[in-house]
Amino acid sequence: MSGARLEIIERNCKGCSICVEFCPKDVLEMDVFLVTAPRPEDCIKCMQCELLCPDFAIKVHDE
């Protein structure tokens, strides 16, 4: 699995942590009030984070 490029739009992120919780592969992590993607190589592109982010703050790019 090659992983994906996760684009996080920090201006939009409000730190609700829905994406971190619903990620099945534990790719994302909270850095206090902002989401970070320390393990993008584990991403299986299920798109749960992008679909469930209420703030338009995360995008999964095919890479």
Binding site: N12, C16, P54, D55
Partner: peptide, 11 residues
């Protein structure tokens, strides 16, 4: 954006 809804709001 960002919109006015609270963090985690489903709207």
């Amino acid at each position: 954006l960002p919109h006015i809804w609270c963090p985690g709001c489903g709207h």
